[in-house]
Design a protein around this nucleic acid. Structure first.
Lengths: 152, 152
DNA sequence: ACTTGAAGCTGTAGCTGCTACAAGGTTTAA
DNA sequence: TTAAACCTTGTAGCAGCTACAGCTTCAAGT
């Protein structure tokens, strides 16, 4: 060990982990990346451990884990001797969420598909899409008062 | 017509359309609901047309259309003589988004499922879930630099 | 040593689509 | 008349970044 560690700039770290410097600083700010050491001029310098940690974070985010879940996963992965029940619980919980979202989305897709196929291509006044939106009975919602579907 | 219109308070409008007064004011502020008439004391009063318009908005949001898409749909539904190609285009575009999201989500579910089944329930240090997150190759992403999956 | 240009710094504001206050004013029913 | 229930505006907050502005530092070339 001790092979000139702490030599990676924030930009290079970002490049290696496929994110942006702003994101790295953001992760530091919210406390899931530890404060980096600094050059005399005040710039951040990282070592390989930071690359590993940030890689883990990005992967977990790719899997759709929330930042809070990531925080917990990180805390646990820092304690290799603990039993991994909690890790398991977080993953299972997340899986359930993904599954329920998947279900709702597929219902949605079917409705949209029907909507689109029924549109005969006439005028707006007789457009099936507009009609369906006007008339449809609320039946997709997540929970009783669940929000919308954040599908951009 | 003209049966004492403009007699509905914001709270009642919200109740009838399954949303909250704050949301109604928000929609007014961003310009997808027209400014309401006011009582002498300055409170908003609505008519049945507002109920219809807001119902349309809520339904469209339920279908996952973005507020911008809703804005366009509303503008079009206000012009019944126009051809409905654009309506169709918006709906199709949305459908495509839903479909691609659905695909990515199902890939994600499979990975999570594998992850969870492989966890033998030992210690964190040998937990498959942690390992998979650490090692997995980035392959789920939406677009080249797409964001995360907003799955809570 | 000096210059240049890229990259870094902090701090703040913006994105989406609401939601939740605070601090007051209005309406309505008893 | 009075109290509860409603309404008003304005502002700040949520997630998870992203994008500035206005400045400083670093690394490489000459």
């Amino acid at each position: 060990m001790a092979r000139s560690s702490q030599s990676i700039s924030i930009g290079e770290l970002a490049r290696r982990t496929d994110c942006k410097p702003e994101t790295v600083r953001y992760y530091e700010r919210i406390g899931i990346l530890r404060d980096a050491s600094r050059t005399e001029g005040g710039q951040r310098r990282y070592g390989e451990d930071a690359v590993r940690r940030l890689t883990f974070i990005r992967h977990a985010r790719d899997f759709g884990f929330s930042v809070d879940a990531v925080r917990e996963l990180l805390a646990m992965s820092d304690q290799p001797d603990m039993p991994c029940q909690e890790v398991d619980a977080i993953a299972k919980h997340h899986l359930e969420k993904v599954e329920s979202r998947l279900q709702r989305l597929s219902v949605l897709r079917d409705e949209l598909q029907r909507m689109v196929t029924q549109c005969a291509g006439g005028k707006v006044g007789s457009c099936r899409i507009i009609e369906v939106i006007s008339d449809h009975q609320h039946c997709i919602s997540e929970t009783a008062h669940g929000g919308a579907h954040d599908l951009g």
